[in-house]
Amino acid sequence: MRVELEALRFRYAALEMCFDLSVATGECLALLGPSGAGKSTLLGLIAGFERALSGCVRFDGVDVTQVPPALRPVSTVFQEHNLFPHLSVADNVGLGLHPGLRLDRAQHAEVAAALARVGLDGLGARLPAQLSGGQRSRVALARVLVRRRPLLLLDEAFAALGPALRNEMLDLVDALRRDRGLTVLMVSHHPDDALRIAARTAFVHAGHVLQVGATAAVLGAAACPPLRAYLGTVEGTATG
C-alpha cells in the first residue's frame, strides 16, 4: 500500500507540525529524530488517532484523512500496552479477527497458525504476564498477521528489548513484510534498527520531515547538520 502525506498540519502545545512524505508499497521506512520532534504524532495521523488541522493522508491514492482508525487498513504496535493483561494470548490475537471475540473454528485455527508463525506455538492459553518482553512483542505481531492490514506502524515497538531480542524482532518484521507485502513505517531511536531493515530513512525534526533518502546515505555522509547533531557525528564529519 502506497502512503502519501501532503501538507498534513497538526499542532501540539507550541509545536506546529507539517508533514510531507511518501512511502512506496512493500517498503520499510524508518523514522528517526529527537524526542518531541513529532515522530509518534506522524504515526498517529496515519493511523487516525490524531485529526489533522489540514492537508491529507492518501492510501493508494484514496483520501482517508477523515476515516476513523478501525476502518483504516493499518495495524499499530506500540511500545507498551499492546496486550490486554486480563485476556489470554490467543484472545489478544483473536481480537484482531473480531472485536467482540466471537470466532468460528476456522478463525481459531488462524490464530493458532499466526502464533506458530511468530514462534509462540502452543502458548495461546497463557496470560501476557506469563510471557517475556520479547514474547509479548511476538503476540502483538501475531495479531498484525491475522488482521491482514497492508500497512504496519511500529511506534518504538521494541525499544524496551535488549539488542539481541530487538534484532530478532526486526528480522521477524522484515520476514513478515516480504511474506505479506506489508508497507512498514518504523519509529525508532536506534540508527542500527534502520540500517538493519529499512531501505529508506526519514529524519523528523521539530515537526517536519527534514530529510529522506537511502538509509546508509542519510545516516552517513549525506546527513544534514541537525541529523548529524542528533546522531552525535558532528565532530567526525566536520574535520573529515
Partner: peptide, 25 residues
C-alpha cells in the same frame, strides 16, 4: 489512557469494549 488507541485501532467499541476491556480491568 492505556487502551483507547488500541481499542480504536481494533474497532473494539460500545458493548464489546465494556465487556472485554472495561469490566475485566
Amino acid at each position: 489512557a492505556h487502551y483507547d488507541r488500541l481499542c480504536a485501532s481494533l474497532g473494539v467499541t460500545g458493548w464489546q469494549r465494556a465487556r472485554l476491556v472495561e469490566w475485566p480491568l
